[in-house]
Amino acid sequence: MTAGDAVQARPARRSLRPIASLLTLVAILALLFGVPWWTLTTGRAQWPAPLAAAGSAVFAVTLVAFPVLMYLGHGRRQRDWAARTGDTILGLVWILFVWALLGNVARLALAAVGVADPARSRLVAVGTLAVSAVLALWGYVEAMRVPRVRRVDVTLDRLAPGLDGLRVVLITDTHYGPIDRAGWSARTIAKVNELDADVVCHTGDIADGSVARRRAQAAPLGEVRARLARTYVTGNHEYLGEAQGWLDHMRDLGWEPLHNRHIVVRRDGAGLVVAGVDDRTAASSGSAGHRADHAAALSGADPDLPVLLLAHQPKQIDDAVAAGVDLQLSGHTHGGQMWPFHYLVRLDQPVVQGLRRHGRTQLYTSRGTGFWGPPFRIFAPSEITLLTLRAG
């Protein structure tokens, strides 16, 4: 192959990527909508023709409307009504897809015990629809409720006795967005304030949208009370919009934005370094001066003091271990948000939720305080985390 042939081949290969992406998207949508459609309206159930036609029409109209709604809601137009509708459809079709798959496994069991069609297919269809409806209703209530408080004790070997019992409250992934949750935000912060925190941390993904669009929902963050510090770092969703705007706004609300920097909190003669780094997507976001920089975050810190690090994604733990961090607090995963999505999250992140040890460094990953996209939480409850630090 000549050099000229190579130059011509590269653009040709690049031109196939959009086509491959489009085909992948079409395949995913075909599965998400097709499996429930087949399970609920299959001819083996021998539903009356008008009922089967009506069911098919609902799936067809929804399938056509869904990408349009997502484009209007999450594209450049940013129409909140479209985002709300599209996100809800996504959540409902995911629930139907999962339980349709499980229903078809049950179909095999019914066949094994001698249940024949059309009764078998009708049982699977009705069961899938009933379970999905119950889980959708329950999941919506779980998403909209004030998060429960999850209490965790963490022993740090280097923590001095003067800081034994330090109360750290973690909130994260509030995702103020197309659904106006200003009331929920106020009630959640009231719950935070009941916990009598020494330090309150927010580990990013405050909102989906600009400060101007989500100001009212974020306003209760200004009412958070903490004896020693209120600290914040950016998440990946800030880098889909205006990360610096949220850093500035949180400073205006009285928080300490830990943009690759640290502060020291002290009590009874003992000190704790509270540091923060930008999200791992910051470097590729195009935001000038933004990237995860652990060295900058800990520059000048007393090496004898324990370090509490705020980093949005659990997968930032390797850099935390290398930097000698004692405890990293993260969010991002939402605990999977909608079962069984946590299995896919686990492919990308080392931890989905809870406290884990990585050598000397410990990592706590919250299931998130809010939700993203579909307004459902299924087998992955939201949380406000109260971490009590204990001296080793």
Rank of each mutant, 00 (worst) to 15 (best):
Gly4Phe: 08
Ala6Thr: 06
Val7Met: 10
Ala20Thr: 15
Thr39Glu: 13
Thr39Gln: 09
Ala52Phe: 03
Ala57Val: 12
Ala60Ile: 08
Thr62Cys: 15
Val68Gly: 14
Leu69Asn: 13
His74Cys: 00
Ala82Tyr: 03
Trp94Thr: 09
Leu102Phe: 15
Asn104Arg: 15
Ala109Ile: 13
Val113Gln: 03
Pro118His: 13
Arg120Val: 04
Ser121Leu: 05
Leu123Val: 05
Leu129Val: 12
Val131Pro: 15
Leu135Ile: 10
Glu142Trp: 11
Pro147Asn: 12
Arg167Gly: 04
Thr174Glu: 06
Thr174Asp: 03
His175Thr: 11
Pro178Gln: 11
Arg181Ser: 15
Val192Tyr: 02
Cys201Gln: 09
Gly204Val: 07
Ile206Gly: 05
Val211Met: 02
Ala212Gly: 06
Ala216Trp: 02
Pro220Glu: 05
Leu221Ser: 01
Arg225Asp: 08
Thr234Leu: 10
Gly235Leu: 01
Asn236Ala: 01
Glu238Tyr: 03
Glu238Ser: 09
Gln244Tyr: 12
Asp252Gln: 14
Leu253Gln: 09
Leu253Val: 13
Trp255Ile: 11
Trp255His: 10
Arg261Pro: 00
Ile263Ser: 02
Arg280Asp: 04
Thr281Trp: 08
Gly286Asp: 02
Leu298Gln: 06
Leu308Phe: 03
Asp319Trp: 00
Gly336Tyr: 11
Arg346Tyr: 04
Pro350Tyr: 00
Arg356Cys: 00
Thr361Cys: 12
Thr361Ser: 13
Leu363Glu: 09
Gly368Arg: 05
Pro381Ile: 05
Leu386Val: 14
